[in-house]
Amino acid sequence: MQQVAEIKALPVTEATFADLLRPLIEPGFRLAMAMLHDAQAAEDAVQEASFTAWKKLGRIRDRNRLRPWFLGVVANKCRNTRRSRWSARVDLGVSEEISVLSNEERAVHGADLRRAITRLEYDDRLAVVLYFYLDMPVDEVATVAGKSVGATRTRLHRAVKKLRPDVAIEEALR
């Protein structure tokens, strides 16, 4: 608690902001890429999330929760991007690009998996990406998604069942 209090006392200067934000860009971009499958859209989502971070960083009392908070902002930006006029293009582009790139069995396998994840409901997909790709613990996944831990576990179970009906759930979630 002492550490949190000390951090809280620090003013959000440009240097502080830059130091706090820099390590979050990479996971933010990975999350956005996994959700949007478009590098430009992903960078835009991270950039927009960073603007939001600058405006709201001073209100984050516990800087240790900064990562899940920032990823939550990125996830919202991705959701908005998907709702915008060119979300159809993104969805269409996934399978087309993948089919062009898939000249090896592994690539085909990866493309199939990406496609399967793309077909999941948005919130299920977000949970899968955060848990399996960004390797976040379930409680952090829940924070990012704005759900309870129990609901998040349920989402993960449901998503795994859809992705790999033959895989034991507990083994997959281990």
């Binding site: 860009i25 890429m33 960078e43 950039q47 993948i98 399996f132």
Partner: peptide, 25 residues
């Protein structure tokens, strides 16, 4: 499998972190 599937489509960051930060500032 999921790591592999997404890593193949994620380009390197290059100078993006600094670019994003500097754009905000």
């Amino acid at each position: 499998d999921i790591h592999g599937a997404f890593e193949t489509i994620t380009p390197p960051l290059g100078g993006m972190p600094e670019r994003v930060v500097q754009t905000v500032l």
